[in-house]
Design a protein around this nucleic acid. Structure first.
Length: 450
RNA sequence: GUGGUUGUAGCUCAGUUGGUUAGAGCGCCUGAUUGUGGUUCAGGAGGUCGCCGGUUCGAGCCCGGUCUUCCACCCCA
């Protein structure tokens, strides 16, 4: 192990990677902006009490807490029992944000008087989770969120689904958007007679594609569901789309979740898209605050988790003292989209960090002239780099080759004497001697840039 | 947080039941080409075997700890 290693679950990004990440972000950002969502940024850290209790017990454990500054043991009583949670609230008073939704809710509550409803914002920032890393799962990762608050209209759901579709269409990544509703899940739990153990019911259901139907039935029965009803429901869970809706209706679902989901799908389908939006009764996202529709996006052929998720929450800001503000939002997982695009080899070739031209000097006498040419190229919006040392030409050409630079401008004694320059096309392997004044007049004439 | 897994040259990996000086491919450097990359040829450099400790006459190999990677839980993007 090197003396200095990188913190667990954290990553460096090379320029190659940063440019690809920026490509994804630009696609998402353009879609967000085209729908009228405005950017918001919130701080990396929030007060600890802003975050705790918002993500369930499991979520609380995954929050990165930050020590108080100075003598943080000052407020710990002598002989306090060794208990992590009592200690942490004494020695820590702030934490890295765990998602973008809760900070957004805090922002809304803080600025309630200045915000016109319905309010739309998007937010593209890193979040941190003290999770154990795996493929596609990091301790620091970017979320790209779009939320709208202040409207109960299902048209917002349609709009957000369209935003999902627009982004993945633009990235050429085929995805399936799964949609369901917490109300449908509640109906199912009610049907099974375990409405009071709703969360446990959902957690078992959510695992169906991993552990299989038999295991889900077994666990449901263990939870208290009559075997007959568990069997009846599990057959429906395997259905998708309209047949699933009909089957659930036949069971006597009383909430209007089915109508809502069907309505959203129907409206969505009137607008063309390569992406699929489908009712999936096995979808059971667990986040505590969702109350209506829930969504999840997955790549059609990916080996890791979802690319994004979201849902409707009837009252997100209530915990911060701002009542009755409904909202609905979606999130894109930048890092997973990155992996999906990489796996499917879908990054455009045009993303590259190589300059168009490298200026090469054969002797220190020619350096100033080369530098002048390079400067002129930049004036003409050509990305140009100046090789700083008069080392062997072989070495400088090799550098250009390695970096993928298309053109090299070579100036040595002969060129200085003739007032010319050599323009070498590294791709075609051709080289031309060009009059210096002609080239400086309009360098783009001599370059084939795209 | 629980259980497992991985770590050998810049990269991908080999390394026999523990036994001399730890190897290969690719990459890198130098030269053939004193002003021409990508091909070829010749030569060369580079490793505290993740880290710490233990067993042993002797450890890359066995044992313990630790860090890291990946996997399954948990949960999620």
């Amino acid at each position: 192990m090197a003396k200095a290693s990188i913190a667990k679950g954290m990553r460096d990004f090379t320029s190659f990677e940063v440019l690809r990440r920026e490509y994804i972000i630009s696609v998402i950002r353009n879609v967000f902006e085209s729908f009228g969502y405005g950017p918001l940024e919130t701080p990396s850290m929030e007060n600890l009490e802003t975050l705790t209790g918002k993500y369930g017990d499991e979520g609380d454990k995954l929050i990165f807490r930050v020590l108080k500054s100075g003598d943080f043991l000052k407020s710990v009583p002598e002989n306090l029992e060794r208990n992590a949670s009592t200690w942490s609230s004494l020695i820590s008073d702030k934490a890295l944000r765990y998602d973008l939704t809760v900070p957004f809710a805090r922002f809304l509550a803080n600025n309630r008087n200045d915000i016109k409803l319905p309010f739309k914002r998007f937010q593209i920032q890193p979040v941190w989770r003290a999770d154990r890393p795996q493929k596609g799962r990091f301790r620091e990762f970017y979320q790209c969120d779009a939320d709208v608050v202040g409207s109960n209209s299902l048209w917002q759901e349609v709009e957000l689904m369209q935003m999902y579709a627009r982004v993945f269409d633009a990235l050429l990544l085929p995805v399936k958007i799964r949609i369901s509703s917490r109300r449908i899940l509640a109906d199912m739990a009610e049907f099974c007679g375990v409405g009071d153990r709703f969360m446990a019911f959902c957690i078992i259901l959510d695992k169906v594609d991993k552990v299989g139907v038999e295991e889900v039935v077994r666990q449901w029965v263990e939870l208290g569901v009559p075997t007959e009803k568990a069997q009846q429901l599990i057959d429906i869970i395997a259905l998708r789309g309209e047949p699933a809706v009909e089957a659930l209706k036949a069971l006597g679902a009383t909430g209007n979740g089915l109508e809502e989901v069907s309505w959203v799908i129907e409206k969505f389908s009137k607008f063309n898209s390569d992406s699929v939006l489908e009712f999936d009764p096995s979808l059971a996202r667990g986040l505590d605050y969702y109350t209506g529709c829930i969504f999840e996006v997955e790549a059609l052929n990916s080996s890791f988790g979802s690319l994004g998720g979201g849902g409707r929450y009837a009252d997100l800001t209530g915990i911060f003292g701002l009542k009755d503000v409904p909202g609905v939002g979606i999130s894109f997982g930048l890092d997973r989209i990155f992996l999906a695009l990489e796996e499917a080899d879908l990054f455009p070739d045009s993303i590259q960090d190589a300059p168009d031209v490298l200026g090469v000097q054969l002797s220190e006498d020619s350096a100033e002239t080369v530098f002048r040419v390079v400067s002129q190229l930049r004036e003409n919006c050509v990305i140009a780099e100046f090789y700083p040392d008069a080392v062997k030409l072989k070495k400088q050409l090799d550098y250009a080759h390695q970096r993928g630079i298309r053109y090299v401008v070579i100036i040595g004694e002969n060129e200085l004497a003739n007032n010319t320059l050599q323009l070498k096309d590294m791709k075609e392997g051709e080289q031309f001697e060009i009059d210096m004044e002609d080239f400086m007049e309009n360098p783009i004439n001599y370059l084939d840039l795209n």
